[in-house]
Write a protein that binds this DNA or RNA. Structure first.
Lengths: 136, 136, 136, 136
DNA sequence: GTGGTCTAGACCACC
DNA sequence: GTGGTCTAGACCACC
């Protein structure tokens, strides 16, 4: 697969799988309608407990990142309507606030943090065919 | 106190206390050498178990956010040396990456996210005397 | 287990557990990747409260002596990078100074103390396969 | 006085006073029959609670480091008989063992630790008029 | 007054 | 099965 799982991290393994898939989608490595390995295949490939993978897939389906077609397989979902601004803001504000708090305690300046966000955005977008996926 | 605790959230209560104190420090509401309520006072005020508050204080001490003077009380720590750039980057990179992934799945554009970070920085800095607190 | 706990000593029980594990590691009785008993097992075996053992394990994890794999168990950590000389000196100097002070008040000569350190080093290293374990 | 007290350290203040006096004696800065400041004088000089100083003096008297002559004052004690070897060993062995354990976990080699003990012995002895006080 | 330790026991997430 | 969190309440050392 296109990501790794570290059992020793405190982040739960199923969550690492969820985030790994979402990262691949964000980078464009996985495109809408791409087929994912079955629960058992992925579990075997990564030497994980199938229950763990199944839980990750359930969570991804719930977040509408993937679609499970019974008897056929699992696919990256076609993105739905863009949620309105209020919804987007609500979903991100607490996370960004936490980021700013952590940055402060690491003694990182506002400018330095902005630069870092910019750099990692570029890194992320590099994976995509073109600039795509992120302009205002 | 200057923050609230929601027992129903999945974030552990002791962690909410940790983050609440760190947020107050980042906003400048709590300054170095300020005295914090005692474990028992804060527990009573927020109707938490003293052990839970003690755990939060222990974690804050470990992160060098506060200093415990035995038999006297607990104080906001004077910030130590600024960690070098590599350390700051290492500490934040994964968090920022996760932020970008989440933003993508909420269909938030890069520009929109930058704007949001900027806005929340301003909100955070408003609490301080002047804009201060973060330029390189 | 490979050490005992004396509740009547003034050294806190959880600290005795921490030191006991660290001593076993120093002697080579516990090797990297060895599995430790679970919190509940050790608590039962030593008739301690599980919370006390959990606190010791948390401290050991924080000191990077052990690694906790959630839902799987607890393991002796693989040692990380060797801290640089300045760090090692800083970590030990106060302890050695205290040792010298105590030795003086017990009327132990410098030579006698050196001999004692040497002897106990040998005792410690005996547990390992060969003399090994400490030369520069 | 010839030492400092740091209230923020986890070592109890009264213990810091005890150790400070013992260190001065070990270095020869305080000699048998030297007069110590009274409890109140020392408390005032160091801005400590008189109870704290009194507790330290009580402990020092119990360890036969000082002698309290009621109505006259407090003096550094004349050292008594040298305890026999078994007693000296018993008093130090656990401390040295703990030192070796800590050194191992700091990844300090046996040779390096020996060197450090030697260096700090020299540093300590420098304070004395001559080499004095420590040969086998 | 302050924080630190410990027991006892419930409940939960994760694998 | 594993460790993590939380409450409730006792007891202690320190200042």
């Amino acid at each position: 697969m296109w990501f790794r799982v570290e059992p020793r991290l405190s982040k739960p393994i199923y969550q690492q799988v969820v985030d790994g898939v979402k990262e691949s989608v964000a980078k464009g490595l996985l495109q809408p309608a791409d087929k994912l390995p079955s629960v058992r295949e992925l579990a075997a490939e990564m030497t994980l407990n199938p229950n763990t993978v199944a839980k990750a897939y359930r969570e991804l389906e719930h977040q509408r990142v993937i679609e499970v077609v019974r008897g056929r397989g699992t696919y990256i979902a076609v993105p739905g309507a863009i949620p309105d601004r209020a919804e987007r803001v609500q979903g991100m504000a607490d996370t960004v606030r936490q980021l700013l708090i952590d940055a402060h305690h690491l003694r990182m300046s506002d400018g330095e943090l902005m630069q870092m966000v910019q750099d990692l955005m570029n890194e992320m977008n590099e994976w995509k065919g073109e600039a795509g996926g992120g302009e205002l």
